[in-house]
């Protein structure tokens, strides 16, 4: 047994690397309420790409150990390949977005595309670490390193949500003639009586209060606002149709204190659930701003 393990060190290392890479990809491939990646073909595509990424990470180790340094350049091919994955996801999602009643918006799409690219690199990392340890040390340490890399991957998988940066509370939807308010925040002008009736019957208002200057900047990002509307509309349903331009969920800022007024028209009128959903909306990486980290502000304190 031990001679077999010694003789086939590289093969075993590579197989373990690929397996752990694949496990990493599987653990990061979740189809949730947004149904993306789509089931089953979207998933098949990403699993296959995951296997390729895992294989690349795993075979890089024997190449390096055999002092075949130029072989590392093929990792650049991998990088190119996964950039293409990102482009592919962006293109598909942008096209699909035109057919949604409430759109994801460009920032959300960019976020998803970025995640797809990033996760493939995590797979490469996981399989590289596993096969490196398995080949240079021994197979059971390889197992341990693989398990550890899965933990790291799991940590990197989860981002932050609105609950980390703001408080969400319910606010009454108020109509003064044609003017629509959520709490004291002006949302829009609704001209038709029939639409005003639907809004007073169906509308839910939320106010999102940012906790600090950083979250103010993030919440005021238009992409982040659209993500909030999209998540609320996906989970609660949306009372809207093509050709009904006035019945539109909307988020407006109170410019004085950067509170965000969110107006939605759900199918399922469940205000408590709406608050819960808003708290769990992911924060989009590209929407994050950190004004407090600026030199000017740090020196001031």
């Amino acid at each position: 047994m031990s001679t077999f393990l010694l003789n086939n060190k590289y093969t075993i290392g590579i197989i373990m690397g690929v397996l752990f890479g694949l496990l990493a990809r599987l653990s990061m491939l979740r189809t949730d309420y947004r149904q993306y990646p789509t089931h089953p073909h979207g998933k098949i595509i990403h699993l296959s790409l995951g296997i390729i990424a895992a294989a690349l990470g795993a075979v890089a180790v024997p190449a390096l150990l055999k002092k075949d340094y130029t072989a590392v350049t093929f990792l650049t091919v991998a990088a190119q390949q996964f950039r293409d994955v990102r482009n592919m996801e962006r293109d598909t999602l942008t096209k699909i977005d035109g057919m949604e009643l409430v759109q994801r918006g460009a920032t959300y799409i960019e976020g998803i595309a970025m995640v797809f690219e990033g996760r493939n690199y995590l797979v490469i990392m996981s399989s590289f670490v596993t096969s490196f340890t398995a080949i240079t040390l021994n197979w059971y340490l390889g197992l341990a390193a693989g398990a550890l890399s899965l933990l790291v991957v799991h940590r990197l998988r989860t981002g932050k949500s609105i609950s980390h940066i703001a408080e969400v509370e319910l606010a009454p939807v108020r109509q003064e003639g044609a003017d629509l308010y959520v709490g004291d925040i002006y949302i829009m002008n609704v001209g038709l009586k029939s639409n005003q009736e639907i809004i007073s019957e169906r509308g839910i208002g939320l106010i999102i209060k940012p906790n600090n200057p950083n979250s103010k900047a993030t919440l005021s990002n238009l992409g982040q606002r659209q993500a909030i509307l999209y998540d609320l509309s996906t989970i609660l349903g949306v009372y809207r149709d093509d050709g009904e331009p006035a019945l539109i969920p909307m988020a407006k800022l109170d410019m004085r204190d950067s509170r965000l007024g969110v107006f939605i028209l759900p199918q399922e009128k469940d205000p408590a659930k709406a608050v819960e959903i808003a708290l769990r909306v992911p924060i989009l990486e590209s929407a994050v701003r950190m004004p407090t980290e600026a030199k000017v502000n740090e020196e001031g304190n």
């Binding site: 044609a178 002008n189 609704v190 001209g191 038709l192 050709g243 331009p245 006035a246």
Partner: peptide, 25 residues
């Protein structure tokens, strides 16, 4: 005014807004 605006909203796929002086756009 309401009725015509309602019809036009559906036909043109454009939202109706009230200028509050008897005029809808």
């Amino acid at each position: 005014v309401e009725e015509t605006a309602f019809l036009l909203e559906k036909i043109l796929d454009a939202s109706v807004h009230d200028l509050k002086d008897g005029t809808l756009i």
